[in-house]
Simulated assay, not measured.
Amino acid sequence: MDAELSKAPLVVVTGGLGRVATVVLPWLRKHFRVRLVDSAAAARRVEGLVQADIGDPDEARQVLAGADAVLHLAGNSSPWQTWDNVYAANVWTTQVTLEAAAANGVPKVVLASSLHAAGEYNRPQYRPVDPRLDPRPCCPYGLGKVVLEALGRMHAERTGASVTCLRLGLTGWPPAERRYLGQWLSDDDAGRLTLAALGARERFGVHFGVSANTRNHWDITSARHELGYRPEDDSEALADRAGPSSGPVCRLFDPETSE
């Protein structure tokens, strides 16, 4: 690490070995000191990686010590989970992370939400979906993200910290099926969005996180104007390689209209 970067702000990334963290890490390392936190860290050698259970309050407080920001990516992203699993993997870990952030006086928090928090709007009559609409989750996973956003708002109001919730689309994967073209977030745009969110000083905000896709299903105006997000990629460049739907996922997709 060069001398200038050694003085950079410290961002703690939960779920540090996960898909989204892996995608955005190169962007983070250009501007921040990074502490990656993951329960599976023992078997990996990665700079700045710490093994910890972010769902354990004591461990969470320890790994967030000295942080200038936390990027909370830990959780289970499967839309097929039961509510019990969603609560344990996503809701509880968010609550513990926010409590640890409060205990350490962390001034900036970015929470990974999901399009599933508004999945019932993924219909032609609502597109592009406005993030200011009331949440309408399409599955237990989406409901968990609605709770995550509510916890984030409460944290911002109670502590004065800046909290940004990003309703991420398809991240870390190519849009192999046509139904994903309207919700794709490219690797580079994921990096741009994350940096914009970490730099934002809004008290609380919820924004959709997708690329500048021609199939404009999710309105990213607020991310552009309030965060300064400048996406450069478009899923249409990959449309020729996208095939039909492979099967049901959850109510985020209406079989007759989602493509």
Rank of each mutant, 00 (worst) to 15 (best):
T22M: 05
E59W: 00
D134F: 09
L98S: 06
G169S: 04
F208M: 13
W184D: 04
A176S: 07
P131H: 02
D234G: 08
E236I: 10
E226H: 12
R153H: 13
A67H: 07
Q95V: 12
R123H: 15
A237G: 11
N90C: 10
Y87E: 14
L36D: 06
A89F: 11
A117N: 08
E177F: 13
A161E: 01
A239G: 06
Y229G: 09
L115P: 03
T97P: 00
R241E: 12
A74G: 13
S211M: 09
H155C: 14
E232W: 13
S162P: 07
R203P: 05
A118D: 10
Q62T: 00
M1W: 15
L5D: 07
L195R: 02
S222R: 15
S162F: 15
T257K: 15
P140T: 15
A65S: 07
E236N: 10
L193R: 01
L73E: 03
V110M: 06
T164S: 12
C139N: 06
A52S: 05
R127D: 07
A103F: 00
V24M: 05
C139S: 14
G169E: 02
S246F: 12
G48S: 07
T221I: 04
R192E: 02
A21M: 00
P26N: 03
K108Q: 04
V210T: 15
L36K: 08
C138H: 08
Q51S: 14
S186E: 01
L238N: 09
G160Q: 03
G55Q: 06
E99Y: 06
H31T: 11
Q183G: 07
S162R: 15
P79V: 08
G152E: 02
A102G: 09
L10D: 03
Y87Q: 14
P137E: 03
V147F: 13
V12F: 00
R203Y: 13
F208P: 05
C139K: 10
L168T: 15
P128K: 00
P9E: 01
S77G: 09
L73I: 07
W27P: 11
D233L: 10
P135Q: 04
F204Q: 03
E59L: 01
L185N: 01
T159E: 02
L185W: 01
F32V: 11
R179Y: 05
L181Q: 07
L252C: 12
N213Y: 03
A237H: 07
T164W: 09
W92Q: 14
K108M: 03
N85I: 12
G142N: 02
G75L: 14
F253I: 14
P9N: 05
S222P: 12
S258D: 10
G48Y: 08
A89T: 11
D68S: 09
D240M: 11
R215Q: 13
P244H: 10
